[in-house]
Design a protein around this nucleic acid. Structure first.
Lengths: 175, 175
DNA sequence: GGGCACATGTAAGCTGTTACATGATTAA
DNA sequence: TTAATCATGTAACAGCTTACATGTGCCC
């Protein structure tokens, strides 16, 4: 994107790629040092905190292209919400309800964030070449979030059904 | 679900929870041994390969409820497809296209699988109490997959736009 | 002068995968 | 009898996070 300090890089990853990527300081700084050793990035300024930025070199950009062309490494799925719902009989319909409500709220929050990112991208004058690609990732986030909301609404209705049929008879009569 | 060998457990995780969870043998066998030590599962038959199954005990079921009630541990996002699209300018619109097409095909394949799981669940006579919960997770998979397909179609159109405007003039004239 | 945000780095350690070793059972 | 599948287990190690240590510059 542009020359940055390691700290700024982390903030950019969190704020811009946050919905599909993350890196910790423990990854960033050693990697930056290694990339510098390989001549893929160049440090400007002394290593004193707050006074050096890293810029990608020409060979760094070439290496980036190489890496982007490599096959996508699949990450083993691990969705805690789905696992809890799968064992929903043991957890109880009420607890499931709160989990789904929470997931719904998360998705709504994400939708708002995507809106904000869209706005920010439209205002920015730089990176006009990159913008259309960046918007693709925002759009993916929006589709996913909207799907999550639709699923949550369906699921809340289904959980009500389950709750009603599971209730002890006197529970049901009391309504 | 029912008493199983470690091997069968892994197959069940892969085939039933596969779209939202995974465990490797390197996790399963040591964990099973530890659970047995704690009295949370009971081994029936000798430890000889092929002749022992593990069954959850009463205290094991209690422990399961405890664990299910714990807060969901968030997994740091790491979506290789999105990362590649974000750097799409460097990868090129054509390569992006194939990645998105592949993602679309994956989502279609998943939809078919969910259909199969739905069928299988409906045929099964056991686990009638669990079924409604299990179907919630299938439904989530379907929503996600359909969202992925819709996004992919939108994205393919957008990539055509990008490709057209990025083409060198003589390229465009030749069409 | 005190607190906060910016900034860099390291070390310990957790989590989980991959690869390997080994053996039983079953079907061709 | 040989290959495939079922089955159990271990060891090495990759990958990454967390916590800590340290320091700078700025603003109130």
């Amino acid at each position: 994107m542009e020359p940055m300090t390691g700290y700024a890089l982390r903030e950019a990853i969190r704020d811009v790629l946050g919905h599909f990527w993350s890196e910790s300081f423990g990854q960033i700084y050693p990697t930056l040092a290694e990339l510098e050793r390989q001549g893929l990035v160049k440090r400007r300024g002394s290593p004193r905190p707050g006074s050096s930025t890293f810029a990608v070199t020409a060979s760094g950009r070439a290496r980036l292209k190489e890496l982007l062309a490599q096959p996508i490494r699949p990450v083993p799925p691990r969705n805690g919400l789905m696992l809890r719902l799968f064992f929903g009989r043991h957890l109880g319909p009420e607890a499931c309800r709160s989990l789904v409500l929470e997931a719904r709220a998360d998705a709504e929050r994400r939708l708002v964030q995507y809106e904000a990112i869209r706005k920010e991208l439209e205002l920015e004058a730089d990176h006009t070449e990159d913008r259309p690609f960046w918007l693709l990732t925002v759009s993916a986030g929006e589709h996913t979030a909207r799907a999550a909301i639709a699923w949550a609404d369906e699921t809340l209705a289904a959980l009500d059904e389950i709750g009603a049929s599971t209730d002890a008879p006197e529970e049901r009569r009391r309504r």
